[in-house]
Write a protein that binds this DNA or RNA. Structure first.
Lengths: 159, 159
DNA sequence: GTCGGTGCAAATGCTTTGCATTGAT
DNA sequence: ATCAATGCAAAGCATTTGCACCGAC
């Protein structure tokens, strides 16, 4: 009834998808804190990678269930928090009720275009926002740590 | 044990502070929906006005308690929702746990500069963001409904 | 008298935590 | 052995809701 010890397996798969940096960053961060890169954590990171960008905790749980990786809800939340601390995942709070999270690929910021009528969420890139942010911080003698931009829109003619 | 019926009192005070438009908008919206502008709702709007911009539900409750206006938690939440529907108040979700709300003065969007080290939140105006938003929506044939921009920063030299 | 509004307390639902067990070095 | 991680179930907490009563038109 134990957990299968197949971290290398997962690790390989993730690396084969050119996502090695994520694993590497996460593992280094864990190592630095005296924490461990466990199979559960690997599975969770793997599942996150498979969700292309934006996800909810519940979706992540389901995705793990589907790949028959048994990871408890508590561990998922705990790992998400670790990933946030490592700067790999960012909490994104939309208008609605619960939290979404999004993978942060390195330092490239991702903006969101949210269709309020359909619920669709598109990820877009607006490098000029980082510049705007940096300028504003510079003017005030602050160090920029990040930013968040979300656009809400509907199809033409919707309410 | 009833509620004191002093809506005019509150109304006057708010209007004397040049915030008549808010009351007016709210009242019109309520009227349109066949709802009422009650003393409790007036008190809540009044308290929101007194919080200059950004507030949490709990702060609002406390502020009401301090002015010895007894309004229940449930009513506060219900009224905030009405104010959101009326476009007077906007839900703002920061990194942290719970929701903040902010007064929306007419249609002018307010962006936020958040000091992650001190917790300070500064309100700034960046009209160019609305243009950027509109351009992006136009490119995709969408109607812009709003946007949200938040900058996270620390003082020079902080973590 | 009909509706909506309010307060209270109970319910909700996401997220966190306590605790005993398990796993890795 | 030690120290951290996990799972489960219980606890937390902001927010919502059900319900009985109250007030306005």
């Amino acid at each position: 009834m134990g957990l299968e010890p197949l971290p290398e397996d997962v690790l390989e798969r993730a690396e084969s998808e050119a996502l090695a940096p994520l694993c590497a960053v996460f593992r280094r961060r864990l190592r630095d804190e005296g924490l461990k890169y466990t199979p559960e954590r690997a599975h969770i990171l793997d599942a996150i990678i498979g969700m292309d960008g934006l996800f909810e905790a519940e979706q992540l749980l389901e995705s793990l269930r589907e790949s028959s990786e048994r990871v408890s809800k508590a561990t998922v939340y705990r790992t998400i928090k670790l990933l946030q601390d490592a700067g790999i995942v960012q909490r994104v709070l939309l208008d609605g009720e619960h939290a979404y999270f999004q993978l942060v690929y390195g330092t490239r910021p991702h903006e969101l275009l949210i269709r309020v009528d359909t619920g669709e969420i598109e990820t877009i890139e607006l490098p000029e926002l980082a510049e705007l942010r940096d300028r504003i911080c510079r003017e005030r003698g602050l160090d920029p740590q990040g930013h968040r931009f979300q656009i809400y829109a509907t199809g033409r003619g919707s309410t």
